[in-house]
Simulated scan of single mutants.
Amino acid sequence: MIGRRRLLAGALGFAAPALLAREALASAPRQLSLVNLHTGEKLAATYFEGGRYVPDALAALDRVLRDHRTGEVHPMAPGLLDLVAGLAGQVGRPGAVQVISGYRSPASNAALHANSSGVATRSLHMQGMAMDIRIPGVSLARLRDTALALGRGGVGYYPDSDFVHVDVGKVRQW
Rank of each mutant, 00 (worst) to 15 (best):
I2E: 04
I2Q: 05
L8W: 13
A9T: 05
G10C: 06
L12N: 10
G13P: 03
L20T: 04
R22H: 07
L25S: 10
V35I: 15
L37I: 09
H38E: 13
K42Q: 15
L43S: 08
L43Y: 12
A44K: 12
A45H: 07
T46D: 09
Y47G: 00
E49F: 15
V54N: 07
D56W: 13
D67W: 05
E72F: 15
V73M: 01
V73Y: 01
P75I: 06
M76S: 10
A77F: 10
P78E: 04
V84A: 04
A85W: 13
L87P: 01
R93D: 10
G95C: 02
G95H: 09
G95W: 05
V97S: 00
V99N: 02
S101K: 05
Y103P: 00
A107C: 04
A107Y: 06
S108Y: 12
A110Y: 03
H113N: 03
H113A: 07
A114M: 13
S116N: 05
A120S: 13
T121F: 15
R122H: 12
H125G: 04
M126C: 14
A130V: 12
A130Q: 10
A130P: 08
I135H: 08
S139K: 07
L143W: 04
L143G: 01
R144E: 00
D145K: 04
T146R: 06
A147M: 09
L148N: 08
G153W: 14
G153N: 14
G154Q: 01
V155Y: 02
Y158G: 00
S161D: 12
V164G: 05
V164F: 02
V164E: 03
V168D: 02
G169Q: 07
G169P: 00
K170T: 08
K170R: 14
V171E: 09
W174K: 14
